[in-house]
């Protein structure tokens, strides 16, 4: 076999493997979406009915069950916690990169540790504390709990990002009579918009996807969508169409965000590991 033929063969093999991996990756989504559009009789049919008359009944049932309320809760807590994480975390990350003070490396290690710590270690004391001060089933309580995840993440992402911003930019601003705060607000932040967007998107998605904290610290008023979906399993028997419809509704905004912000997501996943 000639060199060119061999190369071609390898290329074809690779293409087939990638296609198979893509099929494996997207099959569950295909299943979820089609099932959400099927009548119960089609959802449970085997061999599967590949061609069926789509129905929106399942979505109707999900919305009737008060799903919009949980959607609202999810959004509200996500936005609250993202705002707090950014407002506090971004300046802190900047200070950690630019200033030299004692405890800086300690702070870095601590941030990593809180990224690693199991949520259950925080959930136990938070539950006890929130019970005594009435923060269980409370938006503020959920926001505080989510901060244990999103704040370290925002600081982590932003330190990686600020390290890439040349000091000369700020120095020029300082010489031109800017205060340090002015330099941060008018010079550093504008050039860091991609980093800020990454941090915000990740923080939003992480809180949107949360299940553990709202399961423990949430309640009837603050129930979030992921918690509400699991309720559809236990209390009403397995209605796959309804479950799938709820699943599609929860996942849809995340998928849209992923498509829009793919580059930021790679940066967020990789963090400062790859320059």
């Amino acid at each position: 076999m000639g060199y060119r033929q061999r190369r071609r063969l390898v290329a074809w093999l690779c293409a087939i493997i990638v296609a198979a991996a893509l099929a494996f990756t997207f099959f569950p989504f295909f299943w979820l979406i089609t099932t959400s559009l099927k009548k119960p009789i089609d959802a449970f049919a085997l061999p599967p009915t590949w061609i069926f008359i789509p129905t929106l009944d399942n979505y109707g049932q999900v919305l009737e069950a008060g799903f919009l309320k949980s959607y609202f809760n999810n959004t509200l807590v996500g936005i609250l916690c993202t705002m707090v994480s950014l407002i506090l975390g971004v300046p802190a990350a900047y200070a950690m990169v630019r200033a030299n003070f004692r405890g800086k490396s300690f702070m870095g290690a601590w941030i990593l540790l809180s990224r690693l710590a199991p949520p259950v270690a925080f959930a136990i004391p938070l539950y006890v504390l929130f019970r005594s001060v009435g923060l269980v089933d409370n938006y503020l309580g959920l926001t505080i709990a989510y901060l244990t995840i999103t704040m370290p993440f925002v600081v982590w992402i932003m330190t990686g990002f600020f390290e890439g911003v040349p000091v000369e930019l700020e120095e020029a601003a300082l010489i031109d009579g800017c205060t340090r705060l002015g330099a941060l607000l008018r010079v550093v932040l504008p050039v860091s918009t991609p980093g800020l967007a990454t941090a915000a998107i990740f923080s939003l998605m992480m809180s949107w996807n949360q299940y553990f904290y709202p399961l423990i610290l949430g309640g009837r008023n603050t129930i979030t969508s992921p918690v509400m979906i699991t309720g559809f399993v236990t209390f009403e028997g397995p209605n796959w169409g309804k479950l799938a419809a709820a699943g599609v509704l929860v996942v849809a905004p995340v998928l849209v965000f992923t498509v829009v912000a793919q580059r930021g997501i790679v940066r967020g996943l990789v963090g400062g590991a790859v320059k």
């Binding site: 990756t25 998605m205 299940y211 929860v250 996942v251 997501i265």
Partner: peptide, 15 residues
């Protein structure tokens, strides 16, 4: 391939 990473874990588990 980024899609599964961001998908809500609860939905993944149910699926």
């Amino acid at each position: 391939f980024l899609v599964p990473l961001m998908t809500t874990p609860v939905v993944v588990a149910l699926t």
